[in-house]
């Protein structure tokens, strides 16, 4: 009897111990699951350094982007600098029709979203501040710096 009882106690404690181990493993697993680093979820996502956005304007130019400060600039920044830099906009000159055609091309082929009410604002801003100027068939050499050649 006594040996049986001892045997049963041992068996019970073994079972309890097994459960304890199981719980530990389970909790450890849950803990890991909750706290695992996000890069194991999305292997392809790149770490993008956070940059504080500086919204200051100097001489009519938005310093962080180089855009001309005018009505529609914020909408342009918000909609036109997600995929490419502001430089791709500011180095170009187009008529309103040209800018509109560029937006359509981006919507058709480059995943640009519907600009909604902002479209008119953005087109007006771009057509006014980034309009073509006539360059003729060949411009002057714009030599501003001279140096002595020995």
């Amino acid at each position: 009897m006594k040996r049986d009882f001892n045997h049963q106690v041992k068996q019970l404690s073994r079972i309890l111990f097994s459960f304890l181990l199981l719980f530990i493993v389970l909790f450890a697993g849950l803990f890991y699951w909750v706290n695992r680093s996000p890069d194991t979820i999305q292997e392809t996502e790149e770490v993008i350094p956070l940059v504080a956005v500086d919204d200051s304007i100097e001489n009519g130019i938005h310093l962080a982007t180089g855009f001309v400060d005018d009505d529609g600039m914020q909408a342009t920044i918000q909609n036109c600098t997600n995929c490419h830099s502001a430089k791709l906009v500011t180095q170009n000159r187009m008529s309103r029709e040209g800018w509109e055609a560029t937006i359509r091309w981006m919507q058709e082929t480059q995943n640009l979203w519907d600009l909604g009410d902002n479209e008119d604002l953005i087109l007006t801003y771009l057509a006014k501040n980034y309009a073509p100027d006539s360059k003729g068939r060949r411009q002057n050499i714009n030599q501003t710096e001279w140096y002595e050649l020995e």
Binding site: R93, M94, P132, R137
Partner: peptide
């Protein structure tokens, strides 16, 4: 960058 009318893209 020399095109007139200007052409779209990196200048």
């Amino acid at each position: 960058s020399e095109f007139d009318p200007p052409a779209k893209g990196n200048q």
